[in-house]
Design a protein around this nucleic acid. Structure first.
Lengths: 339, 339
DNA sequence: CTGTTAGCGCGTTCAC
DNA sequence: GTGAACGCGCTAACAG
């Protein structure tokens, strides 16, 4: 029956409508909803009823404007096609949502330029916190971040620059997996990488360091492909590698997708795994436990990374200092039948 | 130098700051940014410079409040671990971002209750449009949608209730794949499903219809598991199926994950594929072309669905009527060596 | 425990 | 082509 027609607006139910309905002031409704403890039980009951009855949905824009807090957290990951990041996102949501934060997901497609664009756009939402993957933001993005001055935690990698981060050492994990292959007696170990992001590159450095230490590093056993990683890519890269280094006795694939592609291609070529060629992957996809043979790989704590990073961010957003600026969650070698 | 300290606020650069810097009024800055044509070239140049120099980032909350348009679109998908939805999301972003819309992604985890919760939360952002997966919203969610009165397009499935939707017939695709197996001469065709979402169920109905038509339907060849689908689940379900129907000559797996698990398990059991047992999947994961044998499956137009749905939403948000309320994008049988 | 006042940053509306 | 006033819906700050 209200006649007021403010603008063309779709006249959503507002706090004032609820207030009028209940017969109290708007601020009381606001409090009942946000800090229920500050309101009488009976009043709160009536308010809750009215909210339900009227179908009131708070307006986040208004809340954000008035309170200078958006209750939103931006998370930028390089890919959604990679189970690693999907699991991390799930952990983040599981951690932040119960605390009243909405997660805004951005997929940078491994492109610093896209990351910058997304960041610029998402900053318009006034996020209370930001979760980033790695440290490879471009200059513009770094400037944006600095001047936005919003609590930020970096995931997946570690460094000692004082930035908050939760992850594990990519270098060490690459080194350890290579070391494991050496310990098993493999001497001509190849390395296959695609999608040359910073973490891939660091794992490659770990591989190189281990082989150099053993006096066994040979550049022609290494192939790095800038194209995205995929099973098909793994098959192609095996072909390429065997052309230039036919005598490899093991291959460290920078992730499980590639490793699976290599394994399937070996089946086609009747190369016995691991007898003629051992295969190791990275990241431990669910599937990797089920192939024949099961794939040796590195389990990375992606869910834990999301949890811990989100909790660290929660601390920062609350204005507290986390116990430590860097959290190393480690990794685990899963030695299975493919090596 | 400004002394005004309005509240505790972090004093971000605002339109007014830019205006002061350039020496014009705030509204002019606003126009220069949103409708550049309405402002002199030289002025616009100066404004752009100032914006860059000051690092001005628009405040979406304020814009949204003042204009009653949020330039945000909410997209709800049941899973991010499924390449299908990830590809659809990519298409949506590719379509909407250039048109000035930010995509807000929600993962419902195949749970209508979670979908309702997410919807409720995301409605607070005042989205200009909504993209949903399927039609299985629960009552509360449907009520929310109705009273929000926001343009909405449903993806993946088709119906004729008048709701806007873009997808393909799940029933038909399940029917067609089964029909194809029948045509190849298979007579004792099993069906494996996990994660019993509505689309899975409809494909199962297609399977049943085709077999009934041929007089070959036998309930004991069908296993439906409510747990999420995975490669490991495929291996387990094969075991279960072979117990109750050891003489199956083909299996229709409701998605490629399951099919891969079945294939790997067959390798372990030395069951020759397709000679002893044919395997078909659904959705065409990248990997499915590379296994041994390559997997017969159904290619679904997931990227196109995202594109077309986003474009339809764009029409609706612009206040126009799309040409048609329903768009059927079809599917394609990919018959490969596993059948 | 509840109400009053004021203002967050921007765009709409109507002037000029 | 540019500007002034006003208000979007909500909450901080202070009263009472």
């Amino acid at each position: 029956m209200t006649d007021r027609k403010p603008r063309a607006g779709q006249s959503r139910v507002t706090l004032n409508d609820v207030a009028a309905h209940v017969g109290v002031s708007a601020i009381t409704i606001s409090r009942a909803l946000n800090k229920p403890a500050l309101v009488t039980d009976s009043l709160r009951q009536r308010i809750d009823d009215a909210v339900r009855q009227l179908g009131y949905v708070p307006n986040r824009a208004a809340r954000s404007l008035a309170s200078a807090r958006s209750h939103s957290v931006v998370v930028l990951v390089p890919s959604l096609s990679n189970a690693v990041f999907v699991d991390t996102l799930a952990a983040i949501h599981d951690t932040l949502y119960p605390r009243g934060y909405q997660t805004l997901i951005g997929d940078t497609r491994y492109a610093p330029q896209d990351e910058e664009t997304l960041l610029r756009t998402y900053l318009e939402y006034n996020p209370d916190g930001i979760l980033l993957t790695g440290f490879d933001q471009n200059d513009a993005a770094s400037t944006l971040l600095r001047s936005a001055d919003i609590p930020t935690v970096h995931m997946m990698e570690l460094d000692d620059s004082g930035r908050y981060c939760v992850g594990f050492s990519q270098f060490d994990s690459g080194y350890a997996l290579t070391r494991q292959l050496l310990d098993k007696g493999y001497r001509r170990i190849g390395f296959l990488a695609a999608q040359l992001d910073p973490r891939t590159i660091k794992r490659g450095e770990g591989y190189r360091a281990a082989l150099r230490e053993a006096g066994l590093y040979q550049p022609h056993r290494e192939i790095a492909e800038a194209q995205p990683s995929s099973v098909g890519q793994g098959a192609r890269l095996l072909d390429e590698l065997l052309r230039q280094a036919p005598d490899c006795d093991a291959i460290f694939c920078n992730n499980d997708d590639l490793a699976l592609g290599v394994m399937f291609e070996c089946q086609r070529r009747h190369i016995a795994v691991p007898q003629q060629l051992a295969i190791a992957g990275f990241n431990n996809l669910e599937m990797s436990a089920w192939t024949n043979p099961a794939l040796t790989t590195v389990a990375t704590p992606r869910y834990a990374i999301g949890q811990v990073a989100a909790n660290m961010l929660l601390e920062l957003m609350a204005g507290r200092q986390p116990d430590s600026t860097t959290v190393d969650l480690g990794y685990k070698l899963l030695v299975r039948d493919s090596t």
